[in-house]
């Protein structure tokens, strides 16, 4: 059996290997050095690679992302950690107006090989400013790739490809996944960006999700299996590039679709999936597509209330039954 390590350990291992293999790579972020990061993702790297390659920054996201962009344009490959995805909002001009656009606006004369690692989502009772799922926001802007891994295996393989991408990538981890374990091989591997992964084969309904909601969907599939419903779970793994082909192929087989995301339902990226599927696979749909997302209120501190607001396994089970006309509204 392949060894089992946590999601955080898998990222740490990827960073370790990348720093060793490529001298132009360096890490930048708040508390990532001595402290090893709030989620211990960069633990031990400062000791191994020193303060020139693992650099602690002040609380100035806009400033050090700007620094990273400049470094990237001049030949280095910075991997920046933004402690919470919510904090990218104070640096959004640097990310979306600068990093995402330089290559286009310079006619390809410059590249910005920058990876911004961050973490998002709820589940820890961290409150409205520390629990958001903003992947859809970034996916709205051309010029930056958006990656949201769901397993230790995926997070390592996708981080390797993101660093090799030669363009800006926002790499959104999930705070509730850091301690989840999974199989990760010892040998080197990478996973290409833009390829969705079918995490479970099924024939009755397609469930599309990413990040933490993949595990929720798998748990829902287990519940549904008891009732004889065979769900196919697709993990998009990235929103940009978006692998609609895998989704369409699956819908052509199952004729039913449920899209699950932790982001707020209204204007969430699920609507984009729904739109593309109805356009390209209209004649294969046997019923309306159902979306499962967070309620349209800021995420509460209170853990019980937070559960009410964020999608839970039971919500996915219910949505699938609705999509299959077992429960009709």
């Amino acid at each position: 059996m392949t060894r089992q390590i946590t999601y955080a350990e898998a990222i740490n291992e990827a960073l370790d290997e990348i720093l060793r293999e490529d001298e132009s790579v360096f890490l930048l972020g708040e508390d990532i050095g001595h402290y090893g990061g709030v989620f211990k993702v960069t633990k031990g790297l400062y000791d191994k690679f020193g303060g020139e390659r693992v650099i602690d920054t002040p609380i100035s996201e806009s400033g050090f992302i700007g620094l990273g962009i400049g470094a990237a344009m001049t030949g280095l490959k910075p991997i920046i950690e933004i402690m919470w995805v919510d904090f990218t909002l104070v640096a959004i001009d640097q990310i979306l107006n600068q990093a995402a656009k330089f290559s286009y606006m310079s006619g390809g004369q410059t590249k910005v090989p920058l990876v911004i690692r961050t973490q998002g989502g709820g589940g820890r009772g961290n409150g409205a400013q520390h629990s958001q799922s903003l992947e859809g926001l970034f996916a709205q802007f051309p010029g930056i790739k958006v990656v949201c891994p769901s397993t230790p295996y995926d997070v390592k393989g996708l981080l390797k490809s993101s660093v090799a991408e030669n363009g800006p990538v926002i790499f959104i981890e999930h705070k509730m996944l850091y301690n989840t374990k999974g199989e990760v091989p010892e040998e080197d591997y990478s996973i290409p960006l833009g390829k969705a992964d079918i995490k479970r084969k099924g024939s009755d309904v397609t469930i599309v999700s990413l990040s933490r909601m993949v595990q929720f969907s798998l748990d829902a599939a287990k519940e549904l299996e008891k009732e004889g419903i065979d769900a196919e779970i697709i993990d998009l793994r990235s929103l940009a590039p978006l692998d609609t082909e895998t989704v369409i192929e699956s819908v052509k087989k199952t004729n039913r679709l449920v899209v699950v995301h932790e982001a707020h339902t209204t204007f969430g990226w699920g609507a984009e999936i729904v739109s593309q599927v109805q356009q390209d696979a209209f004649d294969y749909l046997d019923g309306p597509i159902i979306r499962v997302g967070a309620e349209d209120v800021p995420i509460p501190y209170n853990l019980e209330l937070e559960k009410e607001v964020l999608p839970q396994v039971k919500d996915i089970v219910k949505a699938v039954k609705e999509a299959l006309y077992i429960e009709v509204k």
Binding site: N255, F282, D283, Y284, L285, D286, G287
Partner: peptide, 16 residues
């Protein structure tokens, strides 16, 4: 996309 007949007074799903 090919065009499949619709049935005005009979609800029929696209896949059907």
């Amino acid at each position: 996309a090919p065009m499949y007949p619709r049935f005005p007074n009979k609800p029929v799903s696209p896949a059907a």
